[in-house]
Write a protein that binds this DNA or RNA. Sequence first.
DNA 1: AAGTTACTCAACCAAATGGTTGACAATGGC
DNA 2: GCCATTGTCAACCATTTGGTTGAGTAACTT
Lengths: 118, 118
Amino acid sequence: MSEDRLSRVFAALADPTRRDLVARLSSADATVGELAAPYDVSLQAVSKHLKVLEDAGLVSRESRRAPVRLEAEVFDLMTKWIERYQQQAEERYQRLDALLAEMQESTPPQQSRAEDAS
Amino acid sequence: MSEDRLSRVFAALADPTRRDLVARLSSADATVGELAAPYDVSLQAVSKHLKVLEDAGLVSRESRRAPVRLEAEVFDLMTKWIERYQQQAEERYQRLDALLAEMQESTPPQQSRAEDAS
DNA sequence: AAGTTACTCAACCAAATGGTTGACAATGGC
DNA sequence: GCCATTGTCAACCATTTGGTTGAGTAACTT
C-alpha cells in the first residue's frame, strides 16, 4: 500500500541536495528560482529534484510559480516506520541482557569461558 | 561530515527488500541464508543488499557465517534529522496561524475575501 | 586434512538517477 | 495583447543500482 510511498520518501531524502532543500523549506517557503540560486547546478536540475520531493509528498505548490511549501506530515510516516523496528530491536536486546544476567547468576564465578580463552 | 552517512542510510532504506530485511532482523538475528530464503532472488542479490545495509551501518556481523545483527543506534541519526526539520516547520506554521488569527481580529467581519469570490 | 556447505567476488546487463542543453509553456507586468 | 521572466519538458549522457550467473574463498564437519 504505502510501501511504495515510503520507498519514494526515503529515496528522496537520500540525496544531499534534496535534504538541503527540505532543510531550507523548513524555515521558509520559497520559489523554484530562489531555491535553485545557492547551488551550482542548473535550474532544471533543481526543478527535477523538486519533482522528486513532490512525488514523495514532501513538498507542494498551489500553482506553477507559487512558493514551494514543505509538507511536514510525511515525516510521520518515516518516524512511525523507524520507531516500530527500533523499539522492537531494543526490547529484544533488553530481553537478551536479562537472559544473560540470569545465566550469569545461575553459573557461579568461573575461571574461564570458551569464547574468550587466552 | 556524517552527511554522507545519512545519505547511505536513507538510500539503504529506500529499497523495499532492504526494509524488509531490517524489519525481520528487528525481531531476530539471522544468517545470510536464512535471510535470503523467503525472497525469490538469488542469494548473491541478498548478500549485496546486506552489504548496502552494512555500509550504512545498519547491520553488522562478527564473521562471515555469523548471524547478521541489527544496529539500532543508527536509527537515532535519522530520527534526529527528521525531528529537527519537522519541528522547525511546525513552529513556523504555528507562528503563521497566530499571525493570521491576529489579522482576522484586527479586520472586522467582512462580506467577501478576494480568493474565494464565487 | 578433505570435503561440504555457506557465502562473496567479478563480470555482465537493463533500468533508474542526476546531470546537461535547448526548446517550449505559462504567468505577471506594462 | 505583447513581452519578459520563470519554470518545465525532452533528448541525451555518464554513473549507479539491482539483478543475473559462474567461479572462488572461508568456515564448519568428519
